[in-house]
């Protein structure tokens, strides 16, 4: 076991991990941050997406030890300081961009990173940008709509 220290959602945290411990496992089991979900074992589904130093990363693809010293942000750190939903989270609720909620943390984290890179994406850019995150409930319609709304674009022309 090796000690690892990183910043998670603005707080410095440490824990003892095995070399094989994935960041996703450290967040969930080591820190109790169970909002980061594990939906596959091939880094395909994106449910475990978090931010590492501001970039979207599938937390099942990196070892906890590899992100020692990094700034990590998870879904638990996405709301506004007063606890209210961020613009992006609110857009997901407004647009019914989630159903079972399991892919949702990864979708929000991936969407936030997408918008940071490209503040006014086209529909095609949103779809391409979220291609690494699987959702089985929504058919993606309302997720794409939510991201477009969060970017401040007019979504009234998008069909119901």
């Amino acid at each position: 076991m090796t000690k690892v220290t990183m910043t998670v959602n603005g707080k410095t945290v440490s824990g003892e991990v095995e070399g094989r411990t994935l960041l996703s496992g450290f967040l969930r089991e080591g820190l109790g941050l169970t909002g980061t979900h594990i939906g596959c074992d091939t880094s395909q589904c994106g449910a475990c997406t978090v931010h590492v130093n501001g970039r979207a990363v599938k937390s099942c693809t990196v070892f906890a030890l590899d992100v020692a010293g990094a700034e990590v942000k998870t879904i638990e750190g996405m709301a506004n300081a007063d606890g209210s939903l961020s613009v992006l989270q609110q857009a997901f609720q407004d647009c019914h961009g989630l159903q079972c909620g399991f892919c949702t943390p990864g979708m929000v984290m991936a969407s936030a990173a997408l918008l940071a890179d490209n503040p006014t994406p086209s529909e095609a850019e949103v779809r391409h940008g979220l291609e690494g995150n699987l959702c089985r409930c929504t058919g993606y319609h309302n997720i794409v709509k939510a991201v477009l709304q969060a970017s401040g674009q007019d979504i009234t022309a998008i069909p119901a």
Partner: peptide
């Protein structure tokens, strides 16, 4: 109506069996 469930799911506070 917007869903009341969404708040917990959007903030990482859902409680699934694995959690």
């Amino acid at each position: 109506m917007k869903r009341r469930e969404d708040i917990r799911f959007l903030t990482g506070k859902g409680r699934y069996t694995a959690d």
